[in-house]
């Protein structure tokens, strides 16, 4: 009997504070898998923005610097410029990155800062209690768009991956989802590409995770998965918008060995 799936070592053995069905935990796990895979625990610095992701330091066993709301990419710029050989990533939600932090992320991307942005897009402000986010879908009801987001008043969902990909400093930009195991596996491959981008010093890497916030969507976890499939993915098409790296990932053959590849 062989254990073929376990918690990654860098993921501390602590229960998450996240709500039932929230996808943050999967993003945390995938991050830790990659940190372990590349042996980065001892030279990684994480920079969580303000939002549900801020407690990253309670779960991931690496050095962490909290950033003011929206400023994670500026803080990461400072850390990375001082320690260019460290692995630096930010962890930001749609309010943090897509609203208050747009200036910082666009310019960090445009400078080609060699760090990785983990962008968790659940189309709502989670920690503050379900207000409308820049990525909220048209018609989506939130506590500040009670009749549904109306483009005439609130504009349109912001597409960060598409927005950043054309910038010359961006080496990798992709959007993935986490609502099925198959999507989680694709997300892992994309995250690996993002890690490789930084490790090969190719520039700015950006990975957007479409994820569920059942609590603030006022849906059950099951309904949330359906909502992602039917509505979120229509508004936010998945895919790799830019990848300046070699077409074949160095680690791709390992995929053959995964337990999941058996099926």
């Amino acid at each position: 009997m062989q254990k073929i799936f376990a918690r990654p070592a860098t993921l501390l053995d602590t229960g998450f504070h996240f709500c039932p069905g929230c996808h943050h935990g999967i993003v945390h796990r995938l991050l830790c898998e990659m940190l372990d895979h590349y042996g980065l625990r001892e030279r990684a610095v994480g920079v969580p923005g303000v939002g549900c992701g801020v407690f990253l330091y309670d779960y991931i066993d690496i050095d962490v610097c909290e950033a003011p709301h929206g400023r994670a990419t500026a803080v990461a710029t400072g850390i990375k410029r001082v320690q260019p050989d460290h692995f630096v990533f930010t962890y930001q939600g749609d309010g943090d990155l897509g609203a208050i932090g747009t200036a910082e992320v666009i310019h960090a991307a445009n400078r080609g800062e060699n760090f990785t942005v983990i962008f968790v897009n659940n189309a709502v402000y989670g920690m503050t209690g379900g207000q409308m986010a820049p990525t909220t879908l048209l018609g989506q009801c939130t506590t500040t768009s009670p009749a549904g987001r109306d483009s005439r008043n609130d504009g349109y969902p912001l597409h960060l991956a598409e927005l950043l990909a054309p910038l010359e400093g961006v080496a990798f930009a992709a959007r993935v989802s986490l609502h099925t195991p198959a999507h989680v596996k694709k997300a892992r491959r994309a995250l690996q590409r993002a890690f490789e981008t930084q490790l090969e010093k190719r520039g700015f890497s950006f990975l957007e995770f479409i994820s569920a916030c059942p609590t603030n969507w006022r849906l059950t976890p099951y309904q949330s998965v359906e909502h992602i499939e039917k509505n979120m993915l229509r508004a936010f098409p998945l895919g790799t918008y830019k990848d300046t790296g070699a077409p074949a990932s160095a680690a791709a053959p390992e995929e053959e060995d995964t337990a999941n590849a058996v099926l």
Binding site: C65, A67, R71, A74, V75, T77, G78, I79, R81, V82
Partner: peptide
């Protein structure tokens, strides 16, 4: 905030 990061 870059200074914050560098200081950190």
């Amino acid at each position: 905030n870059m200074m914050l990061g560098a200081a950190a």
